[in-house]
Nucleic acid binder design. Structure first.
Lengths: 171, 171
DNA sequence: CTATAGTTGGCAGAAGATGCCAATGAAGAA
DNA sequence: TTCTTCATTGGCATCTTCTGCCAACTATAG
């Protein structure tokens, strides 16, 4: 329901909150060259429109004892709709699964799995993943190094996204 | 530098902020059964220790015009250290690349790329990815459906993580 | 039992959040 | 061009929250 298309200020608000969700409304307003009132109103509107789906703390995986990230490709047998839904729901409900997508290519599903170590992954693989309904093949690719993570979405910037004070509205 | 191991309250703080980073310190304190002062102190400590790496708004990809997510497997030629670093830095600097990992298995790198549509991906692939230094093979897997995304990290819960009022400290 | 270190809760001043209203600016009609 | 209408803004007032400081409490070691 994008009632109104995003304007430059909305995009800057989204970019700022994507970078730092704990920004004070006052700080945010200053950053986008608005006074606090309309700034807060826009944020609420973006939230209500579903454009902002939530605010999350990004944790250090190693620091909380989750040292192993695995990308898991899963092939499933041709199945009925009900069976497919069951598989998806089962996968989504697993705490170790951080993300899961139906993808084109060799695998049907691509999961990102986070566990403490190789032993934990072995347990998760044999005790959980391999027992999911309809699984025909599983391929595990271990993350050896993280080059980039939680990168911000590249918000389209139009010509009017001036990073400094907008000329049309002085204080 | 995990000076002190995480206790149950720390884990609950992390879990809560992972779920909702905009929680008020008062709300957070209430949720973890502390008064605001020590709660805030713990949060600051977790931030300083690097366990909390940041706070980010989660945006609706479709809503901001980024309707296509692609998982890109890249093979690179055997290269020197300097060349490898150049590749990693180049990849990390690309706005369309949301995450990038060095992985085991068929590909050397696995990227998650976010673009507006197929045309934009075609431009990105031919204009940028294929021109990166040392690339020998690229395999693009398109996300057809998102089953789960931005799932919270499964914080290890010990026996003392009682979800209700802690017995040892009444108000 | 005493001493010590670490943690908690409460308090107070400062800062931020947020609803309300008049004013400003833009777009369209006449 | 001028007037009308509508959406959006900025400022204000009030309430909530933030956050540093201090005394009290708990647990551990001696």
């Amino acid at each position: 329901m994008p009632t109104t298309r995003l304007d430059a200020i909305d995009r800057r608000i989204l970019a700022a909150l994507q970078r730092d969700a704990r920004l004070t409304n006052v700080q945010l307003a200053e950053e986008v060259n608005l006074s606090p009132s309309p700034c807060l109103r826009r944020v609420r509107q973006l939230e209500a429109a579903g454009l902002i789906r939530g605010y999350h703390a990004e944790l250090d995986r190693g620091g909380v004892g989750l040292g192993l990230t695995v990308f898991v490709g899963i092939k499933v047998e041709r199945h009925h709709e009900a069976q497919a839904n069951a598989f998806r729901e089962a996968v989504a409900a697993l705490p170790e699964v951080v993300s899961a997508h139906l993808v084109s290519g060799e695998s049907d599903f691509l999961l990102q799995v986070v566990v403490a170590d190789l032993a934990a992954y072995e347990r998760f693989l044999t005790g959980t993943l391999l027992r999911l309904p309809g699984v025909s093949d599983i391929r595990s690719n271990f993350a050896i190094q993280t080059v980039k993570e939680h990168g911000p979405l590249p918000l389209a910037r139009r010509e009017d996204d001036a990073p400094e004070a907008s000329p049309g509205r002085g204080p």
